[in-house]
Design a protein around this nucleic acid. Structure first.
Lengths: 147, 147
DNA sequence: ACTAACGCTGACGTTAACGTCAACCTGTTT
DNA sequence: AAACAGGTTGACGTTAACGTCAGCGTTAGT
């Protein structure tokens, strides 16, 4: 009767996972040491489930955003409350909100950098059109002039 | 009167800068080694100008965004072309645009994480109100079982 | 003159996040 | 049986980004 779980095993070996996400096996084992992944075993071999696969995706996204593995773990643990006490839930809620706030800040900084770089692009384009117009017939002179 | 204005010197000592930005002196010297800052000297002592101060701000912003010092240096060098050759300008322009594109991606990922966390907050809040009313079992993992 | 504050230069230590390598097991193919 | 592909566990190496510490030189105040 308790065959509620789908017999369709959505399991991955370590190489499957590492190819899909383009990471090394060493990295996956390292993440396991750090508690970011928790595959079970078939004998000695690791077997990753759907959950681990999803978490790995989140870890890598976190990394692309510049978070440390410790920070990422903290964020992941927010999804894993299962049956926390009320106080634990409250703490998690506060942490989530802090994280959200800092992410908004980060977003704003990114916006700033983007507009900075866009202005820089405009300037470079201006320099390029100007440089191309003067066709530099005397390149040698210029080269010699600028020591 | 070719007197340079040393009266209100826009110069900073290492401790002034480190206090303003809350970094260590070691860090400032390290950034100098890496070519991110280029203070001149009064005898042995470093003297930072407005330019260095601005660059330091950009470096720290870049760090908050998760960039390595090498990447930050590349971005800073985009502001420093002065009078490059045409090909160099073209390269810089392309690099700037790539950087802008990747920043847009990063921004989108941040948005994704933000909405993930906001949903998690909603779920946690739901669990809290329910928990406070009665001692019912909670199932955050099922509630979050996105796909 | 002495000390305290501030600054400098090495040089070694540290942490995070892996890479690399050796040695081993294990099932499958040749 | 031998080799091979894929997996495992240590253990040590590496890089980035600093921290820390020792030793030394200059002013400024007492």
């Amino acid at each position: 009767m308790p065959t509620a779980a789908p017999a369709r095993s959505e399991q991955f070996t370590i190489t499957e996972l590492r190819r899909e996400f383009d990471v090394s096996a060493r990295t996956l084992r390292f993440y396991e040491d750090k508690g970011l992944l928790t595959p079970h075993r078939d004998g000695q071999a690791r077997i990753y489930g759907y959950r681990d696969r999803a978490r790995l995706g989140l870890v890598l996204r976190g990394k692309r955003m510049g978070f440390s593995l410790a920070e990422i773990k903290e964020m992941l643990d927010l999804y894993n409350l299962k049956d926390g006490q009320v106080t634990q839930l409250e703490v998690s809620l506060e942490k989530s909100r802090e994280r959200i706030a800092s992410l908004h800040e980060q977003r704003n900084e990114i916006d700033d950098v983007i507009s900075d770089l866009e202005r820089a692009c405009d300037v470079i384009e201006g320099m390029l059109t100007e440089k191309r117009r003067e066709q530099s017939p005397c390149r040698l002179d210029e080269a010699l002039a600028t020591e």
